[in-house]
Amino acid sequence: MKIIVCINHVPDTEAKIKIGADGRTIDKAGINYMLSPYDEFAIEAALRLKEKFGGETLAISLGGDVHKETLRKALAMGVEKALLLKDDSPRDSDSIGRALAEEIKALAPDVVLFGKQSIDYSDELLPGLVAEHIGASSVTCVVKLDAQEKSFVCEREIEGGHEVVTAILPVVISTQKGLNEPRYPSLKGIMGAKSKPIEERQPKAFDSLVEVVAMSKPPAKQAGKIVGTDASAAAELVRLLHEEAKVI
């Protein structure tokens, strides 16, 4: 089975976000980056498919040199090959999707795995974009996966339950928390990843279809009312919710 996993490198969840001088992007100074958390489930799923069916695994990330760090993590976890589509310029999801699809289509994989979303912009667009561009079936937000040679039976999360979906290969899967427990890279894996080559190519450029007009800090919220310091405040809280906030 030919398995590809697409991964992203995003600001640490603790990062203090400052707006850049252009008013359209963030100020990157001092920000630590990490592998986008959902993408760990995608890497783990890729490794398990390889363990079950044999074949090869490849991790792809589109971004600047710093994305190598995230690709090394995938290699350390056990992915065999890594490809950096090197491009530091800002791109919208559509253009990332087209560039990824171009590479992926040429490789004719059986399965392409994604995280459910990148936690920077949280667009949740790439799995569907790539699936459509490469002409594959897709299942997003997968929490359970029963893989067979020619088709996968997945459970995807929907509001108030799960949808059981059958998808014919080639298939794009986006992974949600709960699908698996991502493994920790072994020491041997970490050491090995350091010496593994990361292939680099320049992705094709595409016009953006979504333009950022402005980025700003959210309006500061004024601290609320402390209604009381013990259970006796319950009655007053209920009154406020009913009469002032009018939410019950």
Binding site: I26, V212, M215
Partner: peptide, 13 residues
Amino acid sequence: IYAGKAMISVKVT
């Protein structure tokens, strides 16, 4: 975006 640490306004072209 960024976990509510920033707001973004976009235009589809």
